[in-house]
Every structure is written in C-alpha cells, then in structure tokens.
Simulated scan of single mutants.
Amino acid sequence: MDLVEKFDAKGKTGAPYHVEVYQIRLDEANEASAVDQRSYKLADGRALDPLSNEKFRIVQTGEKIYRV
C-alpha cells in the first residue's frame, strides 16, 4: 500500500483534519485488467468512507468532513 495523496479537510464545526490516501494495486491475470483500490484515512489512523471526491465520513464517529 502506497501513500499517494495528502490533503486537509474540515468538519462542520471547523475542526481541521489531515487526510491520507493510500493506493494498492490488485493484480489480475494481466496488467490490462489490474485494478487500483484506494483507501482513505485520517492522519491519526481513523478510517474514512468517501461519499464523493470532496466529502468523507469518519467511520468511527459518523461525522462528515469536507476537503478544503
């Protein structure tokens, strides 16, 4: 799993968060059918569910955060 992106996000209260995006390549029978899978986490390790490219939900708390 490789770190491929970092960005800042904020919650509705204005609390700042640092998001890290990890990518893993799922190899299929050949390179043409390989799939890249991304996972999103806060810098403190909590998992995120992507709701869109700009909006995420913290799995542990349900809080929605937004890319800034």
Rank of each mutant, 00 (worst) to 15 (best):
V68K: 11
D49T: 12
K41E: 15
F56Y: 02
R38W: 05
R57N: 01
N30L: 04
S33D: 13
E63K: 06
V35N: 07
G14R: 03
L48W: 05
T13Q: 14
A34V: 07
Y22E: 08
P16N: 14
A15D: 12
G45E: 08
G11R: 05
D44C: 11
Y17E: 05
V59I: 04
V19I: 12
L26M: 07
I58M: 06
V68A: 04
R46N: 12
L51W: 00
D2N: 10
E20K: 09
A34C: 07
A47K: 12
Y17N: 06
I24Y: 13
I58G: 02
S39I: 12
G45P: 09
Y17R: 11
V21R: 10
Q60K: 15
R67G: 03
F56R: 01
T61C: 11
P50V: 03
E54R: 15
L48R: 09
Q23P: 13
E5G: 05
P16W: 05
V68R: 12
E63R: 13
P50I: 04
D27M: 09
A34N: 03
K10D: 08
T13W: 09
K64R: 02
D2V: 11
N53F: 12
A47Q: 15
V21Q: 02
L48G: 02
L42K: 11
F56N: 03
P16Q: 11
K12R: 14
Y17C: 07
E28R: 02
D8Y: 12
Y66T: 03
V68I: 08
K64F: 06
E54T: 10
K6R: 07
D44V: 02
E54L: 07
K10G: 04
G14A: 10
A9R: 01
D36P: 02
H18Q: 14
N53E: 09
P50H: 08
N30R: 00
D44N: 14
I65H: 02
Y66I: 03
A9M: 03
V19D: 01
I65Y: 00
Q60T: 13
Q23Y: 11
Q37L: 15
Y22C: 13
R57H: 01
N53G: 14
K55R: 01
H18D: 10
L26S: 10
A43F: 07
F56D: 05
V59L: 15
Q37W: 06
G45R: 07
E54A: 14
Y40V: 02
P16V: 08
Y22P: 05
E20C: 13
A34F: 04
I24M: 13
S39E: 13
P50K: 03
K55E: 06
D44T: 02
Y40W: 05
D49Q: 11
T61Y: 12
A32V: 00
